[in-house]
Nucleic acid binder design. Structure first.
Length: 155
DNA sequence: GCCAACGTTGGC
DNA sequence: GCCAACGTTGGC
């Protein structure tokens, strides 16, 4: 049984929910953490919902909803020497890093703050809070249902 | 911008 | 393969 949904973190100064709204769809690349990579490769499925998390900003927390529109494939930025996330140790014949594509669904009128999520008895157990540095993390069914309700998402 | 947490690296 | 040093993340 897989996760009901996912949390993807991004710094809005670099790429926020409004950028995704404008572009409609984006390649989620540059993930260089093995735990996050494993979730992208083995867990994230086509059609899965993704809570878009704003980090390192005035109000950190859930900023909107996206969905997975392309499942795991090799992250091309790992092979690009000019890219900040270039990894010379990633062999194109055995790619080390993984991307997925996500599409915009909706933006929240205001961010659900991290403090509110942490204080919620259902959401306080999110893996996000135990593995603070994880940029891709699963949300189990009960927690997803709670988050969906807080955010007012239909699906 | 401070600092705690923690994943990664590299010397041994 | 241990573990100290280092770098990065991310909330405050």
């Amino acid at each position: 049984m897989g996760a009901a949904g996912w949390i993807f973190k991004s710094e809005p100064d670099t790429y926020g929910i409004q950028d995704l709204k404008r572009e409609k769809r984006v390649r989620w690349d540059g993930v260089r953490n093995y735990t996050a990579r494993n979730f992208l490769r083995d867990g994230v499925k086509l059609g899965d919902p993704v809570a878009f998390w704003h980090s390192s900003t005035k109000v950190a927390g859930v900023a909107g909803l996206a969905k997975v529109v392309k499942a795991a494939y090799p992250d091309p930025t790992a092979f690009d020497p000019k890219h900040a996330a270039y990894d010379p140790k990633s062999d194109p014949a055995a790619p080390r890093w993984i991307s997925v594509d996500v599409a915009f669904v909706s933006a929240l009128p205001q961010v659900i703050p991290v403090a509110q999520i942490r204080a919620d008895p259902v959401l306080s157990g999110l893996l996000l809070f135990r593995l603070n540095r994880l940029s891709v993390s699963p949300v189990e069914a009960a927690a997803w249902a709670r988050l969906r309700k807080l955010a007012g998402w239909k699906a």
